[in-house]
Amino acid sequence: MAYPRIAVSAILKREDRYLLVLRGKGQSEGQYAFPGGKVEPGEKLGVAALRELHEETGIEGANARFFRLYDLIAHNSDGVLESHYVLAVHLVDAEGDQDAIAADDAVAVGWFTIEEIRSLPTPPSVIECIEYIDRHGHEPEPRVLSMEA
């Protein structure tokens, strides 16, 4: 498999709760994380974040805004590269009356407070994102240029 791979995730917050999915496979299997996954060839990052949100939770999101970029590199115990993902985290909006239902590779889905998330098995990036939002609010949307070849 060629590395690095590009992945996205979507942060959806309702009042004081964040939407997380319990991963059923992949690098974060058994951990709670923001809905997300791999970007398909030719797919824009924001579009991928909204697609993954819908595939894993059934929620139709909107207004995907870039929030954070993570360089996630994992090696096995022998020091051999296991995976390398570049993760583009996005903030998203959604109508408040939509119910989240676990689908695709999500085993479960739920809305959690920061305190609850701190007690769950999560990737470090999830904690970093929610603690930043709790302390500083959402970052201003960066300027992103889209170019067609």
Rank of each mutant, 00 (worst) to 15 (best):
I127C: 02
P140G: 08
S119D: 11
P123C: 12
E128I: 09
I127D: 00
H138A: 13
T122Q: 02
T113N: 04
R135F: 12
E139F: 15
E131L: 14
L120I: 03
S146K: 06
G137Q: 11
S125A: 10
P142A: 03
I127N: 02
P123D: 08
Y132R: 10
I117H: 02
S125R: 14
H136E: 14
M147S: 04
C129W: 00
H136Y: 14
E141D: 14
T113I: 10
I117N: 00
E139K: 15
E148C: 01
P124Q: 03
R118F: 04
I130F: 07
P121Y: 14
C129Y: 07
R135Q: 14
I130S: 09
D134Q: 11
P140V: 10
S125I: 12
M147L: 08
E131G: 08
R118A: 12
H136M: 12
I127M: 00
R135G: 13
I114M: 04
S119F: 05
I130T: 09
Y132N: 11
L145M: 07
P124T: 07
H136Q: 13
V144A: 06
P123F: 10
P124E: 00
P140R: 09
E115W: 03
E131S: 12
F112E: 04
E131K: 14
V144E: 06
E148G: 04
L145V: 09
S125Y: 15
I133S: 08
I117M: 01
I130Y: 10
E148I: 03
S146Q: 05
D134A: 11
D134P: 06
E141T: 15
F112G: 05
R118Q: 08
P142M: 04
P123A: 13
P124F: 02
R118T: 04
E128Q: 10
E116S: 09
E148V: 06
G137M: 10
H138D: 12
I130R: 03
E115R: 06
S119G: 11
W111N: 04
E141H: 13
M147P: 00
H138Y: 13
P121A: 15
I127R: 06
E139Y: 15
I127T: 08
S119R: 13
M147Q: 05
F112K: 02
T122S: 02
L145A: 08
R118P: 00
P121R: 15
M147E: 04
H136G: 05
I117R: 03
R143D: 12
E141Y: 12
T122H: 01
G137K: 13
P124Y: 04
P142N: 02
H138W: 13
P121E: 15
H136N: 13
P140Y: 10
I133V: 14
E128D: 12
I127W: 03
L120W: 01
I133Y: 11
T122L: 01
I117C: 00
C129L: 09
I117A: 03
S119K: 13
E116Y: 06
V126Q: 09
R135H: 12
